[in-house]
Amino acid sequence: MAEIDPGFRRTRRESLFLIVPWLVCCLWSVTYCYLFGYRDHARKPGDVSSLLPDLSGYDPFGAPLLDPLGWGMPTWIFWGVFVPWMVSIVFSIVYALFVMNDAGDDDAPAGEES
């Protein structure tokens, strides 16, 4: 096996690490939304699919309907998608500025193929 560039190893490590935040977002959003948006509401018995239990005692106009900030989002959307979306923006900025670096660039000048 030929000699491996340390810059490549670092690039590989920091790039493949991105699978982790993707997986966290996927698991959080889909699981939270399924538990609190697909199952936990006042659907009439058997309305949509057999996946959904009878929760006819649930109060659709009670406090949990909308998000705590008063932006009009259902709570399951607020915690399941909106909040992770905001966290992802912060994470992306931190990752791009402080985690990802320029190791591995061959110091080629701009427009090198001219």
Binding site: F8, T11, R12, S15, L16, L18, I19, P21, W22, C25, C26, S29, V30, C33, G37, M73, I77, G80, V81, F82, P84, W85, S88, I89, F91, S92, Y95, A96, M100, G104, D105, D106, A108, E112
Partner: peptide, 29 residues
Amino acid sequence: MFLWIGSYMVFPLVAMGLMGKRLNQLSHR
């Protein structure tokens, strides 16, 4: 539909970060 499009919260990270830097370096090389 917010959940339907929710993956876009990490789309730029995955689409550009997963292979972008490496492909760019290889194309220069």
